[in-house]
């Protein structure tokens, strides 16, 4: 976890500290078990083809969870994530496994964000961010937004 972020530390246009992720076929199976989404589209190539998808695709909800991780790491333990949204615009394909634990070389995904608004409301110090997951080609496959409340230095 990063050190605590305060409202005064953040300006409009500032970058949310980026977070790298590597989706693997193994991770998708782990995610299916942890989230309860057992749609075979995410682990069965033949089923995927029958649905018009060339290979198993990364769960949209996993990318959404990555964006949650991006925000909670950035705001620190005293920050509160108030809203999070994202749209599943582009498909992402996981790296296949080389060994039991290690994937083949390939794509790395980046979760990123930028501060779009800073305001006080109802006694809270709020920051709104544009956030997204981008694939190895720099395409934003999962754009979204987040609102967080941060502690203020002036009010302790």
């Amino acid at each position: 976890m990063a050190k605590q972020l305060y409202y005064e530390d953040v300006d409009v246009g500032a970058e949310v500290t980026p977070l790298a992720k590597i989706a693997t076929t193994r991770m998708l199976v782990q995610w299916a078990g942890a989230s309860g989404d057992f749609n075979p589209l995410h682990y069965d190539e033949d089923f995927g083809k029958s649905q018009g998808v060339s290979a198993p695709i990364v769960h949209g909800a996993l990318k959404r969870a990555w964006l949650g991780h991006l925000m909670t790491d950035w705001i620190g333990e005293q920050g509160v994530l108030k809203k999070l949204s994202c749209q599943y615009r582009g498909m992402d394909y996981p790296r296949k496994m080389k060994t039991m634990e290690q994937p083949h070389d390939g794509e790395t995904w980046w979760c990123k964000g930028k501060v779009s608004r800073k305001y006080e409301e109802g006694g809270e110090h709020l920051i709104e961010c544009e956030i997204w997951v981008e694939n190895g080609n720099g395409e934003k496959t999962t754009p979204g937004s987040a609102v967080v409340a941060l502690p203020s230095r002036s009010k302790g």
Partner: peptide, 16 residues
């Protein structure tokens, strides 16, 4: 346990 398995599946080591 369900929370921990979910956090591990995301790859989020947050101690909370």
């Amino acid at each position: 346990g369900a929370i921990q398995r979910y956090a591990q599946a995301i790859g989020d080591p947050n101690p909370l």
